[in-house]
Design a protein around this nucleic acid. Sequence first.
DNA 1: AACACCCCCAACCGCTGGTTG
DNA 2: TCAACCAGCGGTTGGGGGTGT
Length: 317
Amino acid sequence: MGKGRAPCCDKEKVKRGPWNPSEDLRLITFIQKHGHQNWRALPKQAGLLRCGKSCRLRWINYLRPDVKRGNFAKDEEDTIIRLHATLGNKWSKIASYLPGRTDNEIKNVWNTHLKKRLSSMNGNVDQKYESMATLSSSSCVTSMSSFNDKKPNEAFEMAVVSDKANHGSPSEEPEALSSSSISSNVSNSNQVNVSNPEIQQGPLFNFTGCYYNTSEEVNKPETTFDIPLESDLEFWNMLDSLVPFQPEGIQSHNETQCPDFGEAENEWLLYLEQELGLDPKDGGFEAEPLLVPEMNGMGTMCHYHNTVQPYEPNSKQ
DNA sequence: AACACCCCCAACCGCTGGTTG
DNA sequence: TCAACCAGCGGTTGGGGGTGT
């Protein structure tokens, strides 16, 4: 590494911080059309002033159609605890056993909830195997010794078996954790598999993002996507005055990298536009071509968790 | 009401390992 | 074989919201 590593992107020319809806839509639409063969080139091709890494993270952790959001079910938490005892901080590995959950999300849950819970139960997180003994049956703990050597699906089958032993009736096992669904999808969660009906939940694929609740959300009140259209005339005027965007260097549709959005594509895009308040009927956004202009700096973003905040171009970050 | 503190989590940073020429 | 490039991973950060005083 004598010369050192070239920075992944020019930080001076790259937008950072939270993503705004128009950036999300632009990224989603680009990936939907062209896939994500080259993350580094993607931002330029998609017309985003973002680092490729940032685009990748945003897609994987938030925008993927199959990402599941909301609180973790107890069974999911138990699975994380169990897998963490075996795999350690291999978040992506753990995520591969929890369809729809991202490594980042699992890492956050572990650091904010589960670690503390284990710590309070045992007084010492390092005694994780002892912790496992309290959480799980002895058969589970003993099975861990051979857990490491298993292939993911085999290991998960073991986990499921012990899980059933721990929680009694198999009916307590959530659908997303059923062994059948797992064994059909043991690839890393980063790999998009929207064509898989086991992952693709619902008539449209389940674009949960931050825009609406999923039916699997636990203990969360129903929330709405609340874009204050009236109060953000500047933003919507900006959208109205969009210049057609022509992606650079797009030769052909990449079948292998482009998620198969199938017949739901148009319906989904329509849904997205409506959710984002970009209804073409109102002179707003049309899915193709991508028309969203570049943002005017950090001040343009809005943070939207359950409820979208007012879009304030001049508000401070 | 105002302030301080805490918690959560989206996003960033830097490293690693795989691939390619 | 090796250097350069790239995607992916895991650790960390910091802003915003919630809660306590």
